[in-house]
Simulated assay, not measured.
Amino acid sequence: MTVIVRELRRGDPADAAGFVRIRRQALPFMLSTAESVAHSLEQAHPDSHYRPLLAEEDGELIGTAQVGLVHDSPEPGQGSLNVYVDPERTGRGAGSLLARTAEEQLAALGATRLHSWVLDEPGNRAFAEKRGYRAARSAHFLRLDLANGTLPPLQSPPDGVELRTGADFADDPRPLFRLDAETLRDEPGDIDREFTDYDAWLTETWHHPLLNRELTSVVLVDGRPAAFSAAHTDDGTRYGTAMTGTGRAFRGRGLAKLAKNHSLHRARAAGCTEAFTGNDAGNAPMLSINEWLGYEICATEVNHVRDLG
């Protein structure tokens, strides 16, 4: 049995479907579709040098890797590789070959520091540590049973506050770009990131195939976007929160909670049966909101970092 690693072929629906299948088996808490995989490849920012990889054993796809530079970080040289192997096909060398190929590609692109998210399980952590990675920040995946769980009642917006949807900004999403960019700068993490390119944000975020504008909630205060909860949906009944945030001038007023609760109620009414979200383990305010909404932690990932010589 021979394992090879190759790049995902553009325009190949079988490759995209195989990528989704493996990711869903290895990491069922994140939404993806063949369309979203193709979009990420075709529309990736040129400076990211994004290259999804596939591991193939005798014609069968058994592993994936997302590989690229973090182009929107103010600190140059930040590389990213996330490796996942079909849980029923581990121990065949696919993970090691994917990681080595990704590391070589990123080093050739000038990366000086590599970041890789690893599930917080002994085997996965040992794999990363053996390759010279050190554990850094952790983050949780959380799940909410929309079909059988109980959401907190819908809240009425206070005076001067209005609830809208992302679809209401279809003609001019720039106010949402500004709000998204502001909240991203304060998001905890091991890599600082900035949204400065509106056209890139339109391509990568606003026109992303998973973004559901009707289920995305936007809170306006005196007509100005102040908080939001961006919703992703796949081609089934699964819902995911892409980002929830509040502008700096409006924090401490419960607006993020208001936005996310309304989005989840609309998602349930639209037929979504389970919701997923992710939180940095140190983001106590957002973890508190999600606990109030009924989410439960279902897995944890640890960012592992390796400096190149």
Rank of each mutant, 00 (worst) to 15 (best):
C272I: 00
A126L: 06
D12W: 05
L258N: 02
G223W: 04
Y239Q: 05
L61A: 09
T273E: 15
N212G: 00
A128V: 02
R6T: 03
R6K: 08
L179W: 03
N279L: 09
D307Q: 15
L287D: 07
R92E: 01
R10T: 06
W201E: 00
G79K: 15
A227M: 14
G160S: 08
A267F: 02
D199T: 12
E42S: 06
R248I: 01
N148Q: 12
L210Y: 03
L142T: 08
D186K: 13
L106D: 09
P158H: 11
A44P: 09
F276G: 11
L106V: 13
R6F: 03
H49T: 08
H265C: 02
Q105F: 04
T241A: 14
I191G: 04
N290E: 02
V3P: 08
V161S: 06
T2N: 07
L264C: 06
R89H: 13
H207D: 11
T165P: 10
L211D: 00
L114M: 11
N279I: 05
E104Q: 14
R24M: 01
A267M: 04
T150C: 04
L220A: 07
A94G: 10
A139D: 07
P175Y: 08
V218G: 05
A102Y: 06
G160P: 08
R125W: 00
A16C: 13
R268S: 02
Y84E: 09
L27A: 12
H208K: 07
G309L: 13
F141P: 04
F276H: 15
T64S: 08
S40N: 09
E296N: 05
L264G: 05
R238K: 15
